[in-house]
Design a protein around this nucleic acid. Sequence first.
DNA 1: TGTTTAATTAAATAGATGGTTTAATAAGAC
DNA 2: GTCTTATTAAACCATCTATTTAATTAAACA
Lengths: 112, 112
Amino acid sequence: MSSSEQLDAAFAALGHPVRRAIIARLAKGEANVSALAAPFDMSLPAISKHIQVLEKAGLIKRSKSAQFRPCSLNAEAIQAVADWTSQYRHIWDARFEAMDAAIMRAGRPHND
Amino acid sequence: MSSSEQLDAAFAALGHPVRRAIIARLAKGEANVSALAAPFDMSLPAISKHIQVLEKAGLIKRSKSAQFRPCSLNAEAIQAVADWTSQYRHIWDARFEAMDAAIMRAGRPHND
DNA sequence: TGTTTAATTAAATAGATGGTTTAATAAGAC
DNA sequence: GTCTTATTAAACCATCTATTTAATTAAACA
């Protein structure tokens, strides 16, 4: 999978509230499928599918322990998303710089 | 639209390479639909719809000038995405901190 | 007024997504 | 061996997405 396809999958996966909630839960530590499903009023297979979407997107990793499949976050994919967005940091930084400049002008005694 | 729904829409919108390319183009300055469509081997209606997806997600803003509809980036929505991801910064920062610690130990004369 | 340019809408269609229920599989526990 | 727990697979349905071609709106131009 190309890095563009990887980003496609990661962004698309994060575009669902249940999947973002699963990521939020996993940020606190690894958990198995049933534990991840518990907060949701939704069938277990539905959650299992959401987890598969996150896994295919590379956002989470899975292991095996007896009949459990514990999930944990995969830092790299999440960082790839952060990297993409931070590439546009100057877009919103520009607003703050404009504000700072305005404050500087307002603070200075008016000699203009 | 709730802030969760806004994030849903923004992430989902960014989960398509054409739409990310449009964002990249708009980062260089505003452009109308035909100009945005030019680099792609795709019909104009298809691009028009991608632009509508970006607009509904709040990622871009549009104005009117004669028969043109110039598009420009909306900093706030892009920042909302960046804010969400940066909330998990500690996940990948942890890796760098571990690396830094390892380098510190390696750099120090071995008294262990 | 009629033509060109810019963009959207409509209609059709193929394929993906999100959810359900009902099995099927796999690994302990007794 | 059978029972229970955890998870996935299969089948299915409704809705959404991505794209095309053709028709439509709207402004500029001549």
